[in-house]
């Protein structure tokens, strides 16, 4: 995925967002934290908490694909998988990239995103309705970057909603099911949609799945 939008690419659209984000964090760090936030005011601790938070909550949309493991093992797995510094979650990301998934219904967009965000592939997912939001921090060439993944629904009826996400994306993952010809034919339409809806020429990575 890093090649979909690496730091050297022209993804300037997001940098201002990211600056604002960092700015906000600084402000929050410098302000007076709420009493119950004191324990987790420091950014690294907070990030760890969020990660754990996400894994501990069971959801109807993700319940059965939640890996059962601790936050620390997640870090180890990350470093194995992406060969990155194990302290990645301790550092503030330098940049934020917004990546949107696209592709026909049931090609495996949600599974793909879960594999990437959880380091374990789910055995079952439920139909995505609207858009799901996932996130992951990782190191690429010693740069820590944050990835916001917008996992869209594939059905035609939700297309107008998906389009609004392409508009703000830094890159897109266009996924098709290599056992389903129709989903490959659909790639052309998706590519058009992405080109029409996004503000600039964003990198699109074509992914054959299943």
């Amino acid at each position: 995925t890093s090649s979909a939008c690496s730091p050297s690419d022209d993804c300037s659209g997001s940098s201002s967002d990211f600056d604002t984000d960092v700015e906000q964090r600084r402000k929050q760090g410098g302000g007076i934290p709420l009493a119950d936030e004191l324990a987790e005011a420091a950014p690294p601790a907070r990030r760890t908490r969020q990660r754990r938070h996400r894994h501990s909550r069971s959801s109807r949309s993700r319940r059965h694909r939640l890996p059962s493991r601790s936050a620390s093992s997640a870090v180890v797995a990350e470093s194995d998988y992406f060969n990155m510094a194990s302290d990645v979650t301790e550092r503030q990301p330098e940049r934020l990239f917004k990546i949107v998934t696209a592709g026909d219904a049931a090609v495996g967009k949600t599974s793909f995103v879960s594999c990437f965000c959880d380091d374990s592939c789910p055995t079952a997912t439920v139909t995505t309705v609207g858009v799901d939001f996932r996130t992951r921090t990782l190191a690429v060439d010693d740069h820590v970057i944050a990835i916001q993944l917008w996992d869209t629904a594939g059905q035609e009826r939700f297309r107008s909603l998906a389009k609004s996400y392409f508009r703000r994306a830094d890159g897109a993952l266009l996924i098709y099911d290599c056992t389903d010809e129709g989903s490959f034919v659909g790639v052309r339409d998706w590519l058009l949609e992405i080109r029409e809806s996004s503000n600039s020429e964003i990198p699109v990575m074509l992914v054959a799945n299943k």
Partner: peptide, 19 residues
């Protein structure tokens, strides 16, 4: 209101503790 960034809010909103 305790969540102080976009990410925290979104992750919470799409997975509210109701189980």
């Amino acid at each position: 209101k305790r969540e102080s960034d976009f990410q925290g809010l979104m992750l919470m909103l799409q997975d509210l503790p109701t189980h």
